[in-house]
């Protein structure tokens, strides 16, 4: 076990852990945000640069600081390493710049986008970004590509995190989905309009941090904050069958994987569970999911686990229980 200090918090981690995972082990506000890194996808990370941190001491043996800010998702920890995340103004400033870059070509059509309310880019821009853009040029445009009747692709919203590409590579058996062209013109696409036929292809919706890949069966049906997430399960021969169903009254509007506090699904689910089982009789509903305190999805919903007791002696001015 080796010792790392992140923002003054000392943690012991296994050798070979990245700074991001060490911070996640400690938890709290010191965890750098991540747009492209996904712990369940091998090889992901290192693309979006939102997780930049400052290493003020490389290790115990060589305490010199690292010359530049490093991406915490792909930098391993060393014994005695000292890392600054939110306590370094340099990091905060750099992150603000990264958000500005990510938003350069983003259409900002959040009122239309189905991801709004659970979008990581929205959260990131809200927390770290500037309120105004300095970009004056026209934003990039793409021809509309239809990638099947289950998944909707909006290339203009893509931030090129490559998460869906890794998902397609690792979860599906054949490579039907990838990034074409280079630089500014690069775009997520399927090869020669190959429809994604794999049983687990729907998971690209869950891994997408923005609204580039969304559920076509949920398209414009409701906003995420008008539907209620519930834990549910069913016997599925292909996947674990443990999902989150989003209820609108008694109707299931959509089915997603169960996402943890970093927005990563606990287990990938199959397309049958995601797209075809939209009836309440298909599922055993366990109970409402816990929603983060700051999330808009929490709006107008009752909480679980809070019980309010009435005062025992009700009388004027009596407020003690």
């Amino acid at each position: 076990m080796i010792k790392v200090t992140i923002d003054g918090v000392e943690i012991e981690v296994e050798p070979g852990t990245t700074i991001l995972n060490a911070a996640r082990k400690a938890g709290g506000a010191i965890v750098p945000p991540a747009m492209c890194y996904y712990s369940k996808l091998k090889g992901s990370g290192g693309k979006c640069r939102t997780c930049l941190v400052k290493v003020t001491a490389g290790s115990e043996k060589d305490p010199r600081p690292m010359p530049k800010l490093v991406a915490s998702c792909s930098t391993g920890v060393q014994d005695g390493m000292v890392v600054q995340n939110i306590t370094s103004p340099e990091v905060v400033e750099a992150r603000k710049g990264v958000v500005e870059f990510l938003l350069l070509n983003h259409p900002l059509d959040c009122p239309i986008c189905d991801q709004a309310g659970e979008c990581h880019l929205q959260d990131l821009a809200f927390e770290h970004g500037a309120a105004k853009t300095r970009y004056e040029e026209e934003r990039r445009k793409f021809d509309k590509i239809d990638i099947g009747d289950k998944i909707q692709l909006h290339m203009t919203r893509c931030i090129l995190c490559y998460r869906c590409v890794y998902t397609a590579d690792q979860i599906t058996n054949e490579r039907v989905h990838g990034v074409l062209k280079r630089g500014d013109a690069s775009e997520i696409s399927t090869y020669i309009e190959n429809v994604i036929e794999n049983d687990f292809s729907g998971n690209v919706i869950d891994v997408c941090p923005v609204g580039a890949l969304t559920d076509k069966t949920f398209r414009f049906k409701s906003r995420v904050w008008f539907v209620k997430p519930m834990n549910a399960h069913r016997d599925c021969s292909k996947c674990c069958g443990k999902t989150a169903v989003w209820l609108h009254g008694e109707e299931i509007y959509r089915v997603t994987g169960r996402k943890d506090q970093y927005g990563e699904v606990e287990e990938f689910i199959c397309n049958e569970c995601r797209f075809d089982k939209k009836s309440k009789s298909d599922w055993v509903i366990e109970g409402p999911r816990e929603v983060e305190r700051w999330s808009v999805i929490r709006q107008n919903k009752y909480e679980i686990g809070t019980q309010v007791q009435a005062p025992k002696n009700i009388g004027y001015g009596n407020i003690t229980v």
């Binding site: 009122p111 239309i112 398209r219 414009f220 409701s222 906003r223 904050w225 008008f226 808009v296 107008n300």
Partner: peptide
């Protein structure tokens, strides 16, 4: 109006409802 639902979610009286379409 693009039926984004922000008016409905901000409404303290929950008076607004909407259905979106493409």
């Amino acid at each position: 109006c693009t039926a984004c639902g922000l008016c409905a979610v901000s409404c303290p009286a929950e008076a607004i409802t909407m259905v979106a379409a493409e």
